[in-house]
């Protein structure tokens, strides 16, 4: 079985009907479910936060069996993930999809855990530090999509766990934790 980096593809990835949107309802539901799991699994492994429907996404084609997903199929599978709350369309045209293998709530919990683990309960950090600072190195927060991070932070702000404030430059927002 071929691999994408560390990611091991399942056997059915070489099953040609997997790449054709099935017209029969029951079969199609199962197919969608399998695609959903595979996409989330892959994105989590490779820290992929954004899938462009029209861009080359490794899973969307299989050179071994010379098959690739149609535009309709891609949108269908991504929409299914969106429907489950595990992804969001970033535009009305459904061209870019934000993948949330962790939901925003889960990301928020991860941030809190990160804060506690590093004794940052009353500290101040920049948003960028959370994404690429030495503390976040080796954690799931490393390299997190900024959009997702901001939404998780906003969720925590609403809960009173932290305060966001403008920094001196546009790309440098500050976070004051108050866990």
């Amino acid at each position: 079985m071929q691999k994408f980096g560390d990611f091991k593809l399942p056997q059915f990835f070489n099953y040609p009907p997997y790449f054709t949107l099935q017209p029969v309802r029951d079969t199609r539901e199962k197919q969608i479910q399998l695609w959903k799991e595979l996409i989330l699994d892959y994105c989590k492994t490779h820290k992929v936060f954004l899938i462009g429907v029209e861009e080359d996404f490794p899973l969307f084609s299989n050179s071994t069996i010379d098959r690739s997903l149609s535009h309709e199929a891609r949108e269908t599978f991504l929409s299914a993930i969106v429907g489950e709350g595990r992804a969001e369309w970033l535009d009305k045209g459904h061209r870019k999809c934000l993948i949330l293998w962790h939901r925003i709530q889960d990301w928020a919990d991860i941030i809190l855990q990160f804060v506690r683990d590093n004794g940052l309960e009353d500290s101040v950090m920049t948003v960028e530090e959370i994404r690429s600072g030495t503390e976040s190195h080796g954690t799931e927060l490393q390299g997190i999509d900024r959009t997702i991070l901001m939404r998780a932070l906003k969720l925590l702000e609403n809960k009173g766990k932290l305060a966001l404030f403008k920094g001196t430059s546009a790309d440098d927002e500050g976070v004051k934790f108050s866990v």
């Binding site: 399942p10 059915f12 009907p17 099935q22 029951d26 079969t27 199962k30 399998l34 799991e37």
Partner: peptide, 10 residues
């Protein structure tokens, strides 16, 4: 083959 594949364990 779809019905036989376990979605919780790909």
């Amino acid at each position: 083959l779809f019905p036989e594949i376990d979605p919780t364990n790909l």
